[in-house]
Design a protein around this nucleic acid. Structure first.
Lengths: 116, 116
DNA sequence: TGCAATGTGTAGTATATAGTATACAGTACA
DNA sequence: TGTACTGTATACTATATACTACACATTGCA
């Protein structure tokens, strides 16, 4: 699903039980004009900046990385981590790119718990 | 070191033994105007697009990921890998961000050799 | 029934990105 | 000594990004 449609559905789900989730009020809270958010939600405009997406993720209580991904973006902090050690992380990511989720997760767990 | 200075040094090192590494000729080979490459090398212009950086990396026989990193960029293919499974890779990268190189490398090796 | 709030259409803007085109002065060397 | 090549200065340009400002018709409800 597109970024816009997803946001619209997510916001409207909240709107059902909370009147403060109108386009106008959410727009105000994340710091954009209502007409802009309206257009973004209808995919008439491309997704907003990372900063606004972060605010939106908070509002809608969603995973920032997922929402950013839907917008075709990768979080700044991840980009910086990669840029600091480009060869290492490039190799790492390419190595893991075709691994099933469970294998990668097992690895993450090992790293977290392990004697690294 | 800045992207521009690095490219200049690298190109000039080659120029010493190969006349075809002039600003003009390299610019022609990577597909930009000489004046543009000149400005980029003197950091008077920001680094070029990923595509041009890739061509430059080939010309100078350098690691693309490193050159892209110097330009503040992350390779498209890595970005796509992350965007396909954002939660998984975000967690992975953040988990590894403070690990020493050798620990990460050990992981990569385990993945490559292992029964994943 | 009128005031407030709603979503959206239209038009415009500032800044960044990613360069091109042309001209010019200096150098190399045949 | 002239021509061919060098690096660079100056002036533009096209497209994308990331929005704002304002007006409008519609709906909710006190």
């Amino acid at each position: 699903m597109s970024f816009g449609s997803h946001v619209r559905l997510s916001r409207e789900a909240r709107l059902k039980s909370d009147r403060s989730y109108s386009v106008r009020q959410v727009a105000a809270r994340i710091g954009v004009e209502p007409s802009y958010l309206s257009k973004v939600e209808r995919d008439e405009q491309p997704p907003p900046s990372e900063q606004k997406i972060r605010r939106l993720a908070e509002e809608l209580d969603e995973d920032v990385d997922v929402l950013l991904a839907m917008a075709g973006k990768v979080s700044e902090d991840l980009r910086h981590t990669i840029i600091k050690r480009p060869q290492l992380f490039a190799e790492m990511i390419r190595e893991l790119q075709d691994m099933p989720d469970h294998a990668v997760l097992r690895l993450v767990r090992e790293v977290r718990d392990g004697d690294w």
